[in-house]
Design a protein around this nucleic acid. Structure first.
Lengths: 140, 140
DNA sequence: ATCTTTGCAAATGCTTTGCACATTC
DNA sequence: GAATGTGCAAAGCATTTGCAAAGAT
């Protein structure tokens, strides 16, 4: 949170109570990949007067600052998770086609593919988004 | 087209002139990753009376039948390309962050990562969606 | 003749925006 | 006190849907 506050400050933004509350909900729900509306519902429990537009503006800002990562699980809404600055590329997600559960893959293992792409396509990779669809341990 | 017609027929759907025109536009614009509206504008040139809703219904149907693959390049609209039945998994896309150009990667090279996921996460992979963001040959 | 498909317009659902007021530094 | 941030309601935009008419087998 201290790190995040200084990122905001460095960029000329304030850590308002709404932004702090939004961040705390996301920090306390790691691995949940919350949608904007889910974040809104949670934040409302401590800040009942907050508006949905504020949550939209906050997650957009936090994404631009690299604090959040926007996820797309093909369900028609944006979802967010904390960015992990120690990982230089986003991690992958496993999405169960039966129950919808989403889990994370810590292994990257894309080095050789990315080298091949750099070599064969002359394309400089900065980041990637990788989703695997299939059946989770409970549904397979 | 003969193959597609029989897939439609097998599933109890008709190859109407609207569906044929939609397919022809997609067939004649391979590698363009057209959005629904772009398809609509193209189809209108030969079928001026077609409605946008028909295009939406057609691409949805063709996707369900496995004839099209829906793509998401994070620009707020669905895009489609022909499915390549000889590939058992969708191919990857390279998206240039500067000029927006999208190109395709024929190399899969995900076998070892997918084996690791099966082993470590007990997750049975059926398909994947892989996007690489970076700078293309002209922009790097 | 029956079942499917289409065009249109309206509805939907997520997200963004304009604006007056409030808050922060 | 100037600039930034917020809440609300309205607008925006891609997509879906209800329905009556048209089309296919």
């Amino acid at each position: 949170m201290i790190r995040i506050k200084s990122i905001l400050k460095e960029n000329g933004y304030k850590l308002t109570s709404q932004r702090r509350a939004t961040l705390e909900v996301i920090l306390h729900n790691e691995d949940k990949h919350m949608s904007t509306e889910e974040i809104f519902i949670e934040v409302k429990k401590t800040n009942p007067d907050i508006g949905l537009a504020t949550i939209y503006r906050t997650v957009l800002l936090l994404e631009e600052l690299g604090i959040l990562v926007r996820l797309n699980f093909e369900d028609g809404r944006n979802r967010y998770e904390l960015s992990h600055p120690e990982e230089d590329h986003d991690h992958h997600h496993l999405i169960c086609l039966k129950c919808g559960q989403v889990s994370e893959v810590e292994e990257d293992l894309l080095e050789s593919l990315e080298e091949t792409i750099d070599r064969n396509h002359n394309f400089k990779i900065i980041n990637h988004k990788v989703k695997f669809f299939g059946h989770c341990n409970r549904c397979r």
